[in-house]
């Protein structure tokens, strides 16, 4: 794995094409998408369902590989990697935040946050797993809740545990898929401010959402429609 220099984009997409074969039909999910995301950016990806938004997100998350074109994360082209290398790439450079939190039930917040480190093949990081996880939980304001299991936490608290989990292995990119979809408006503000604070500290965040006011927390908007990038512009003053 190469370490990104200042000039290397965290995500670099070039003529990205993804075609699924559904029986006799070819579904063109992406028809040639190109963009770069630089370190420290806060990008919102929007688009109606069926636009290719999810496909694009899966590829940025190194969960899927392109049919043609190229997608590089920290300069590493994912099209050339096998599934084990993709797993390692996700473990080391990506942090996922999901709409449904996806925390392990009946497992404490601390153990949930530690989970990515158990799959990390770095003995040093594994040895520090407890300290790292505890530090991340403090960062997201859950110092008092480390021993709580998900059912004892509110939705906002659960999503913060998930964010701490995404941060625990010092990723280059946080990928948040509708992170506020299951939260009320008050908690949404809380979580989006947390993402914003992280980007101000230098973290790169890619947010996938269909809600304009949520996307308004980001600094740049990528709009996808019919498998094409139709809009790529900065967001100024939170207005979409």
């Amino acid at each position: 794995m190469t370490t990104p220099s200042a000039g290397t984009p965290v995500v670099s997409a070039r003529d990205l094409v993804k075609t699924y074969q559904l029986g006799d039909f070819a579904v063109h999910a992406l028809r040639g998408v190109s963009f770069d995301i630089m370190p420290g950016e806060f990008v919102a990806i929007m688009g109606p369902s069926g636009s290719g938004k999810s496909t694009l997100m899966n590829m940025i998350g190194a969960l899927d590989t392109p049919t043609s074109g190229d997608l590089a994360i920290n300069g590493v082209s994912i099209g050339t990697l096998d599934s084990d290398s993709l797993a390692e790439l996700r473990n080391r450079t990506l942090g996922f935040v999901f709409q449904q939190f996806n925390l392990l039930a009946r497992t404490t917040a601390l153990d949930n946050v530690k989970l990515p480190l158990t799959y990390c093949r770095d003995p040093q990081k594994q040895a520090q797993a407890n300290d790292r996880a505890a530090a991340r939980l403090r960062e997201v304001g859950l110092a008092e809740r480390m021993d709580h299991v998900p059912s004892q936490l509110s939705g906002g608290q659960q999503q913060r545990v998930a964010i701490a989990r995404a941060l625990v292995n010092d990723p280059s990119l946080i990928l948040a898929d509708e992170p506020t979809g299951a939260l009320d408006s008050e908690t949404t503000v809380e979580i989006m401010n947390l993402f914003r604070r992280l980007t101000e500290q230098g973290m790169t965040v890619v947010l996938v959402t269909h809600e304009a006011d949520v996307a308004g927390y980001a600094r740049r908007l990528l709009r996808v429609r019919d498998g094409r990038l139709v809009e790529d512009r900065p967001i100024i003053g939170g207005a979409i």
């Binding site: 998350g61 969960l63 599934s83 084990d84 797993a87 390692e88 996700r90 473990n91 080391r92 996922f96 999901f98 449904q100 996806n102 392990l104 989970l115 990515p116 799959y119 990390c120 989990r165 292995n169």
Partner: peptide
């Protein structure tokens, strides 16, 4: 299945 998906997303290999 979802738990398996999550584990894979955060870096579990098939072997894990």
């Amino acid at each position: 299945t979802r738990e398996i998906g999550l584990r894979m997303a955060i870096g579990a290999r098939g072997g894990d």
